[in-house]
Amino acid sequence: MKITIIAGARPNFVKIAPIIHAIENSRSKGKDIKYRLVHTGQHYDKKMSGNFFEQLEIPEPHINLASGSGTQAEQTAAIMIRFEKELQENPADIVLVVGDVTSTMACAITAQKLQTKVAHVEAGIRSGDWSMPEEINRLATDAVTNYFFTTSDIANKNLRDSGVDEKSIFFVGNTMIDTLLKQRSRFQKPEVWDELKLKEKEYLVMTLHRPANVDEEDKLKGLMEELILNSNDLPMIFPVHPRTAKMLQKLGISHPRLHLIEPLSYLEFNYLVEKAKAVVTDSGGITEETTVMGVPCMTLRANTERPETMSLGTNELLGTDPQTIKPAMKKLFSGNWKKGQKIPLWDGKTAERIVKVLLNLI
């Protein structure tokens, strides 16, 4: 069996790493399965060097399609054109896509038009918010998927409700958590820890990247002011994109406790998250990681495609109104934040289950 694995952005590699490990483990046991790792080049990330792949313990991609940035349409077209050529030159039995980035959708459609089966890891998650490009990517990808690997019962229900045959749905768990659990003992202390003399549970971690939060000046200013005002004098560590840093500078937002730092490696960032008092974010993936590590998480979004992190985990959805921050922080510092519980099949064995299913398909 030949599998082409698609990754287009840094979080995708975190999700596919355990699948590669599981494939290599099956090969070592004599199973007829091999893979080709295709990086679409959707995101350029200077942190994605050889060291990044070493941290995840995976080889560098067999090819980088270098599709680059651009508008949604330009990027989608570039990925489809380049992946079509790649797949024609290197045919596969199955194209495996993960998550919900543009590469996921573009490669799934391209593969299906070349009559190649598509497997989608993280199928069925939905936010219901069509203003998010990721939601369109999820819907389009699942519309042309053959095999649906899901992270939760909620995702299973979403797929069934959309008419997907039960036999095509495989509830396997979460590969991002496979990576987290495998790498947790290897987390690396970042330089900022000693530079700022940070102490466990005595600082906050922030990540903001969604346009609704960082591109709207009044919204960003209001959020940051409320966070600074209500953070109980704790340091706030904010690995920030240069574009967001410029916006903060333009708005005159600075404070002795607000520390804007360069984006961190996977192992360094999760070192900070694991030891934080809480995380404030608008990222879906981080809500999953905080849930497993038992770290309180405040999500500055009006919706989430990962509701299990709220119903079972440590995540709470605050929305994007700055006025929601004060009561949430009061709840945190009074010791009343929910503890969370284990989520079914988020046990570090998801990739094994995926590869077992793949082997049984052929």
Results as ranks from 00 to 15, higher is better:
residue 48 M to P: 03
residue 84 E to M: 06
residue 77 A to G: 13
residue 42 Q to L: 05
residue 93 D to V: 12
residue 56 L to M: 08
residue 87 L to V: 14
residue 68 G to R: 01
residue 54 E to M: 14
residue 50 G to N: 14
residue 72 Q to D: 12
residue 76 T to G: 01
residue 86 E to D: 11
residue 59 P to Q: 08
residue 56 L to H: 03
residue 71 T to M: 06
residue 74 E to L: 10
residue 38 V to M: 07
residue 87 L to Y: 11
residue 58 I to E: 03
residue 68 G to Y: 07
residue 52 F to P: 00
residue 69 S to G: 14
residue 84 E to G: 04
residue 45 D to H: 10
residue 92 A to V: 08
residue 60 E to F: 11
residue 87 L to C: 09
residue 44 Y to C: 03
residue 71 T to P: 09
residue 93 D to S: 11
residue 90 N to M: 03
residue 85 K to Q: 13
residue 46 K to E: 15
residue 54 E to D: 14
residue 70 G to Q: 06
residue 51 N to R: 12
residue 92 A to N: 01
residue 61 P to Y: 07
residue 73 A to N: 09
residue 71 T to G: 13
residue 50 G to L: 12
residue 76 T to L: 08
residue 61 P to V: 09
residue 47 K to W: 00
residue 48 M to W: 09
residue 71 T to Y: 10
residue 80 M to Q: 09
residue 96 L to A: 04
residue 53 F to E: 01
residue 45 D to V: 03
residue 69 S to H: 12
residue 63 I to M: 06
residue 68 G to M: 07
residue 87 L to G: 05
residue 45 D to T: 02
residue 77 A to C: 13
residue 93 D to N: 14
residue 57 E to T: 04
residue 74 E to A: 12
residue 82 R to I: 09
residue 74 E to N: 10
residue 57 E to G: 08
residue 82 R to E: 01
residue 96 L to Q: 04
residue 87 L to M: 11
residue 58 I to D: 01
residue 65 L to M: 05
residue 76 T to K: 07
residue 61 P to S: 02
residue 87 L to S: 08
residue 94 I to F: 13
residue 41 G to K: 04
residue 63 I to H: 01
residue 60 E to P: 03
residue 66 A to E: 14
residue 64 N to P: 10
residue 84 E to I: 00
residue 50 G to S: 14
residue 63 I to Q: 02
residue 59 P to M: 07
residue 76 T to C: 05
residue 85 K to S: 10
residue 54 E to I: 14
residue 97 V to W: 11
residue 62 H to A: 13
residue 80 M to N: 03
residue 76 T to E: 03
residue 63 I to A: 09
residue 73 A to W: 09
residue 78 A to M: 12
residue 59 P to G: 02
residue 78 A to R: 14
residue 38 V to P: 02
residue 89 E to W: 09
residue 48 M to C: 04
residue 54 E to R: 15
residue 69 S to I: 04
residue 70 G to I: 07
residue 94 I to Y: 12
residue 73 A to C: 08
residue 40 T to W: 05
residue 83 F to G: 00
residue 41 G to N: 09
residue 38 V to H: 02
residue 86 E to H: 06
residue 73 A to T: 12
residue 87 L to P: 06
residue 60 E to Q: 15
residue 58 I to A: 01
residue 73 A to S: 13
residue 79 I to F: 09
residue 48 M to H: 10
residue 63 I to W: 01
residue 93 D to K: 07
residue 59 P to D: 08
residue 93 D to E: 14
residue 75 Q to H: 07
residue 83 F to L: 11
residue 76 T to R: 07
residue 44 Y to S: 11
residue 84 E to T: 09
residue 83 F to Q: 03
residue 89 E to P: 02
residue 79 I to N: 01
residue 62 H to T: 11
residue 85 K to A: 12
residue 45 D to N: 12
residue 74 E to P: 04
residue 61 P to N: 04
residue 47 K to C: 00
residue 42 Q to R: 06
